[in-house]
Nucleic acid binder design. Sequence first.
DNA 1: TTGTATGCGTTATCAA
DNA 2: TTGATAACGCATACAA
Lengths: 338, 338
Amino acid sequence: MKKRPTLADVAHATGVSLMTVSRAINGKPGVSDELRRTILEQAKALGYRPNLIARGLVTKSTGTLGLVVPDNTNPFFAQIARGVEDAAYQEQYSIFLVNTAEDQEREKAALDSLWEKDVDGLILCSSRLPGATLEKQIRHFAAAVLLNRELKRPIPHSTTINVNDRRGAQLAVAHFVQHGRRHIAYLCGPQNSLSAKRRLEGYRNALSEAGIPFDPLMVECSAPDGCAPDTEGGRTAAAALLTRKPKTDAIYAFNDLVAVGALQTVEETGRRVPEDVAVIGVDDIPLATIIRPQLTTLHIDLRHIGRLAMRTLLDTLQGGNSATAIQVEPELVVRQSA
Amino acid sequence: MKKRPTLADVAHATGVSLMTVSRAINGKPGVSDELRRTILEQAKALGYRPNLIARGLVTKSTGTLGLVVPDNTNPFFAQIARGVEDAAYQEQYSIFLVNTAEDQEREKAALDSLWEKDVDGLILCSSRLPGATLEKQIRHFAAAVLLNRELKRPIPHSTTINVNDRRGAQLAVAHFVQHGRRHIAYLCGPQNSLSAKRRLEGYRNALSEAGIPFDPLMVECSAPDGCAPDTEGGRTAAAALLTRKPKTDAIYAFNDLVAVGALQTVEETGRRVPEDVAVIGVDDIPLATIIRPQLTTLHIDLRHIGRLAMRTLLDTLQGGNSATAIQVEPELVVRQSA
DNA sequence: TTGTATGCGTTATCAA
DNA sequence: TTGATAACGCATACAA
């Protein structure tokens, strides 16, 4: 590894002072065009690159952001991360990626670590931390965006971004009703999941609007104690549901993975999708168009959410953000399963 | 945002010198146990956290690593990233995640940016950079691990980790042959892909070992000019192949996504999997067990590779790594599609 | 065992 | 238009 040249090296090579080089490099006024050109040439020749960590020490701005997700392997967060990273690249920011593995201790450690690294801002997805702890941690950062999390009272310099899950659930159920379905089940998500709760609410609202009584037996959990809401969870949940409620003619699933599991179980029990049982998922992950029949689902533009989070963060950093809570609307994409 | 306390603040609050606090915090000798306790208490009370960026400036070690991938959304890289991040968490390192989007300019920018951020080491996946450029960039880092890339001659302080794709392809083809298949096709990956080339080699070798002549018409590209080797690519490639070579009874696909696309097309043309046409993929992504029939595939423990990359990097950083190239062996997982 | 001086690479501030 | 100096928060080297 070559030792990397510093401002002093460039200054020495050009025969000017350190500050003049600094100004030239940063495009600041106060250097004659002629001199500036020579300096930039020298800098390039030497392969000079500013040491952002040293710069950050004095400017109080490191050009780094923290992105905390439960699991970057989950397509949901992977898409968001990609959106964040794309926007960060454009704005010349670098992002620290940290997984919490749904573990509170690890989440706390992650936030502490990010703080130590002096990041300019934080994007925190699906935080599992209790309100008080969360607020205390958030205050360590100059700006924060909370994805998929609501706050009792707003925290200064922080914004929440949530998907309108109630509306989404209503769209799904309304679609079922419109097509004559009456026995509509909900394969719910983890107990402690915020979006799972909201979707249940929307499901119940839509049911009551359609004049269909709510039946607790039509709700089955796809992620029992500690399990993730994945395809396997969808399979077993659907199996349980279909034996308990054989007349089920529509299934609204917590997410696409669960929906696919349900879809497969439905077919394995000799029913056809969508003729006998219609299925709607949430997220519109790539799998939704891979699977046959293709999945009808609530599309959420996750990359866009990622970019939005990034923009909001930057606005907050620059003092120009007033929004405290943002809602993103899902959109029903009708394909083959419903 | 509260201003964060510094060593000086703790020192002042405790009434000792800055250095004594530094020693106490870092667990270095030279502080009486009594005093150390008091200092640590004060530090905790004030909520002191070391500023790692300032520390890095003097110690020449930032505790950060760069992870560069073409696309963190691709399950292949997502798994690797997760492995890297898990290991990093254990070792108290933080990782910068950067996407290149398969774009050389962006890859170069990513490496420059990482350099500016003064990362201790670099994990670079599937670099698209030409050898000379790559080497020059790599030399900027104290240590580097190159995933899925080979080097003409080794670069100091850097290690390559590659999957034994030739062997993998041979395992797949041998499995086909063993089960009486004779018309074995290969749905290849992108032209410029290293692993695609290696897999083609393995395919040809295995064919010749089995006494089956190589027929170029049995090879179809699943990722024509610029397209990604995904499910859609697998579908169109399989369709083209099956019309040209209707007697095909086995398909070895570049990866699982392509394999799934092929599998679906096979079934849509009225053939059964695996009875009429057997299919084998590569990677063993989650989709492989979701899809029906479940995909027989070459399992690669990507998380393990991520952790391995991390360990190798750390060993190099500590001067205790002699390995210059590591091969990881794939394993054939026989499920339902072959 | 404790403290002081110095420097890491950069920018802000003020002087020339 | 240029340059000298201090400071950012911390650790290394050396002195007390």
